[in-house]
């Protein structure tokens, strides 16, 4: 296949958009780097969004490409992918996975599909991590200050919740947030925002929900 068949380049509002063909990763990767070598002036200083299609990419591959691009003066800022693994990799590396913030109506359709789906996260979310999911999110670990959790449904944290959490992000006022230690920097459910009051004494499991249009936290006990 000729070089030009392997990738498509177009200008978008945020810089350059490169769409890679569905070939083996080393092939498309080399094609991209060759193209950059051919026209260094064109790419110098560019902000690049990469559509990798169905490629399943891990940290090693994506960070290697990012460093290679950065050596050529190109900033890789977004990776668009159909693969959940690649999306997770990109998020881990702090790359965007969408070109624009999703419009409300797009999120509405997502909500219909994922109403009962949940995302399982079994690690501590450190500052700078952002997790977004249209359904529920369950976190087995802490959410540190500076981390953000945004769910279409409810959020359950089996650990300490100290970052920013938004449940019912598409307007679902029935969503709840619970944590073993509920001390978020900021807690949002649907359109309401609250700040956790200063804790006195030992933390206990709590659940926050919307009651009469206001956010309300209470002890999270069985029964």
């Amino acid at each position: 296949m000729s070089n030009s068949g392997l990738l498509q380049i177009k200008g978008i509002r945020d810089g350059l958009m490169v769409t890679l063909a569905d070939a083996a990763w080393p092939v498309v990767r080399t094609a991209l780097l060759n193209r950059i070598e051919e026209q260094p002036g064109f790419f110098q200083g560019a902000r690049l969004a990469l559509d990798v299609g169905n490629q399943v990419l891990h940290v090693a591959e994506l960070s290697e490409l990012r460093d290679k691009l950065s050596e050529n003066g190109i900033t890789l800022w977004a990776v668009i992918s159909n693969s959940p693994t690649t999306e997770t990799t990109s998020q881990n590396l702090g790359l965007a996975t969408r070109l624009h913030k999703p419009r409300p109506q797009e999120m509405q359709t997502a909500r219909g599909i994922d109403d009962e789906a949940a995302m399982w996260v079994s690690k501590t979310l450190r500052s700078g991590t952002r997790i977004e999911f249209a359904g529920h999110i369950v976190i087995f670990g802490d959410v540190n200050p500076g981390a953000e959790v945004i769910a279409g449904g409810s959020v359950i944290v089996w650990g300490r919740l100290r970052g920013v959490v938004h449940a019912g992000a598409q307007g679902n006022a029935d969503a709840v947030v619970c944590a073993l230690d509920l001390s978020p920097t900021q807690l949002r459910i649907a359109g309401e925002i609250a700040v956790a009051p200063r804790r006195e004494g030992k933390p206990q499991p709590e659940i926050a929900r919307m009651k009469n249009g206001r956010l309300h936290a209470e002890a999270w006990t069985p029964g």
Binding site: N92, R126, S127
Partner: peptide, 13 residues
């Protein structure tokens, strides 16, 4: 806080 962010980046790498 900044240390936490850096640890997160190292984990990602």
């Amino acid at each position: 806080r900044d240390a936490d962010r850096v640890i997160g980046l190292l984990e990602a790498e």
